[in-house]
Design a protein around this nucleic acid. Structure first.
Lengths: 218, 218
DNA sequence: GTCTATAACCTGATAGAC
DNA sequence: GTCTATCAGGTTATAGAC
């Protein structure tokens, strides 16, 4: 085994892997610790040793999953701004930095999008607060960039708009297998690049059509 | 009590009311039967008598909630088509028939939208299949109308588009209290009429901007 | 139809040996 | 760090009296 990737991962990571997959497909309350430890091939007491409780494990799974994604989004936005050398980004560029990492992640790990869906389906005040904090800085960063790109739109409308698009993307990806079954080979979710470019033109055109913009100054 | 509305509802309905509220705020697995029967002020054994099991109760709650809504959507579409007297409906009219009943329901009962969110939780379950059947006829009906309204767009794209908008609406409504807290009085969710008209212009403009339409004939 | 009592089961957590 | 054994609590479902 030595240097090959068949080297056994540490217990803690194996638990996280198993929990991520099971939480995604069955939900938190729907998956007993027993199943997690069986899938991870570790002893049932290991969860309580490495994490403190099941709730803490849930938080750890989300943190491992979402923190890098948000970092990547902000990195992309920083890079775009640096490349623009002081010029204001377009709405298209802002949306790209927001959703490109998401679509890229989607190609290799479909669990994470199901975990997002779980946030809607299993409200847990502690988890909810945790996620909110995890997202706060990123959301504010993109809100500011979007506001510079579209100064005529109120921040409230931009906030709403970003969340609307986010909800649409999540829902579409979660239910993408339905589209795929119904229209084989024609699902946008199967071609992430096309999905992203459609999303960006869809989202920007939609925002520009809204009444607050119609009655904009200048 | 006699004729007043304080007349006690039948046990079966009281259970459905309590279950709807608790499922919405806590999820299925998150709410024990005990809490439902306590809120409904009925004996715990009544659930098993009136419904057969907890799973059957879940289905009953969804059926009572979504069936009338879908009927109303189709009724509105029928009426619009009748009023058009053979002419083809616009995309705007189709979207209005689809989302107007939803926004109207939202004003009086906010539980139902949370119940939609809960559906993301158990993808493979009996509930998922049940809901799919409940929606199938309605979705096909609107898909046909949308295809007549926008013959240049493929059915696969229209299917995707409708679901994307649906996801955006659900997400926005579920998280509407966030927008409300952050921007008091400015949340579109607080004014359902504005929400609906914005949604319709947003959705149609977005669809018309998409690449398949850009390269449309005529 | 409604209630009490209880069965049968599963859950997360921990103590303590190795 | 890992395991076995077990606890304490909560869950759905049902049998049987009223």
């Amino acid at each position: 085994m030595s240097l090959l990737q068949t080297t056994t991962k540490p217990t803690r990571e194996r638990i996280l892997d198993a929990a991520e997959a099971l939480f995604a497909t069955r939900g938190f309350r729907g998956t007993p610790l027993k199943e997690i430890t069986e899938l991870a091939d570790v002893n049932i007491a290991a969860v309580n040793y490495h994490f403190r409780s099941k709730d803490a494990l849930v938080l750890a799974v989300y943190e491992r999953c979402f923190h890098p994604l948000n970092e990547e989004r902000m990195l992309l936005l920083n890079q775009a701004e640096a490349a623009a050398a002081g010029a204001i980004l377009t709405l298209e560029q802002v949306l790209n930095a927001l959703f490109e990492p998401m679509m890229r992640t989607w190609q290799t790990n479909r669990n994470f999008i199901l975990l997002v869906g779980r946030l809607q389906s299993e409200p847990d005040s502690q988890l909810d607060l945790f996620i909110r904090n995890l997202y706060a800085a990123m959301i504010q960063r993109f809100l500011d960039a979007a506001h510079r790109a579209a100064p005529d739109v109120s921040e409230a409308d931009l906030f709403f708009w970003i969340h609307f698009l986010f909800g649409g993307v999540v829902y579409s990806l979660i239910n993408s297998q339905d589209v795929g079954k119904r229209y084989p080979g024609q699902s946008l979710s199967e071609t992430p690049d096309a999905f992203l470019s459609n999303l960006i033109s869809f989202g920007t055109a939609g925002l520009r059509s809204r009444s607050p913009l119609k009655s904009s100054r200048s």
